[in-house]
Design a protein around this nucleic acid. Structure first.
Lengths: 177, 177
DNA sequence: TTTTGATATATCATTTTGATATATAATAAC
DNA sequence: GTTATTATATATCAAAATGATATATCAAAA
């Protein structure tokens, strides 16, 4: 058996803040969560259907005036499941860094290829770091909401690590040349 | 269609250094590669079968004396595929950090839970950091092999980022208390 | 001598990924 | 004012990854 479906927890977490449609959930995941978790319609919609059937969510179909739209709400049972997960001791943290994979096997080709790949990585990280820093700044200046501390801490994780990536990139390029 | 199978590149990369069995490949992935890529028998064996059929690998069955054992060898075509991948511009780098996911939704429960989860994370990272540092030290003192620079750089990436994780952990715990 | 652990291949259900299909509403371009 | 494009919205599918399990041999330890 593959491990317990994690997208369920992402959905329950998001719905514990606000009622959302599947499409909204995708947008939220693509936002602040994006750099440490991913989601797709292909696993969001089936998960919503399952959790509605097992009573973790309820749905509310709206089509009056506009187009069809299914908004999901978390139930007390859903909140309980979310809390239980938060309190579980084990958590799987995994990197899948194709840049590192390529570098590890860099000896199979010219050094220049590896340097170039690090440069591509660096550019991407610099882009993403800008976004993360703007998240942090926005959250620093608006601590009214009690959840903002948690959002700030995750964004700050990104900033710290991305800065470490850039520091490493400089060193790695120097050592290759 | 799901994206191009990445385990193929891991296998080709490993086989570009030495001939291995599926079981050996799993061990290699669980070793130095483990912290930035994962693999399982469930995707290694099917990939080996496929790549043997498409001519990227050849196999050599040994059962004389001992038990059955299938050693795989990379072909020139396989080496070409590996090089082409190294030269591809795009690379997907992804984190899946359940610790951060839990922290992001930490507001749904007591602060103590979040602090505890960070502590669990910290302990794991400290363990892994020891291993990464020993890799680095071993590779620093043995630069005879031209591939060692590449292995060193990937391990060094781990050290840099894991140290950033620990720095962040201290800060995050302080801010939660 | 038995039991444990390492070696070795293989398969399976569940989950994730990434793409695509379909259709409506809002906005921009011409 | 019509057309083209983009955003909203749900849903499904093939391919790939995950993690567990089944099976069996061999070496080492208890």
């Amino acid at each position: 058996m593959a491990r317990k479906r994690k997208i369920d927890m992402v959905i329950l977490g998001l719905l514990s803040h606000e009622n959302l449609t599947g499409y909204d959930i995708k947008k939220r995941i693509d936002g602040a969560i994006n750099f440490f978790w991913k989601g797709s319609f292909g696993n969001i919609y089936p998960a919503l259907k399952d959790m509605e059937q097992t009573g973790l969510l309820t749905k509310k179909e709206e089509s009056a005036g506009g187009r069809e739209k299914i908004t999901y709400h978390i139930t007390d049972e859903g909140k309980k499941v979310l809390k239980n997960w938060l309190r579980e001791e084990q958590a799987s943290n995994e990197l899948k860094y194709e840049t590192l994979l390529k570098l590890f096997f860099g000896g199979a080709d010219n050094k220049k290829i590896s340097v170039h790949n690090i440069e591509i990585f660096e550019e991407q990280i610099k882009e993403d770091l800008k976004v993360l820093k703007s998240y942090c700044k926005a959250l620093e200046n608006a601590p009214e909401n009690k959840d903002h501390l948690y959002f700030y801490l995750t964004a700050s994780f990104g900033v710290e690590t991305y800065e470490a990536y850039l520091k490493w990139s400089t060193k790695a390029k120097r050592m290759l040349q």
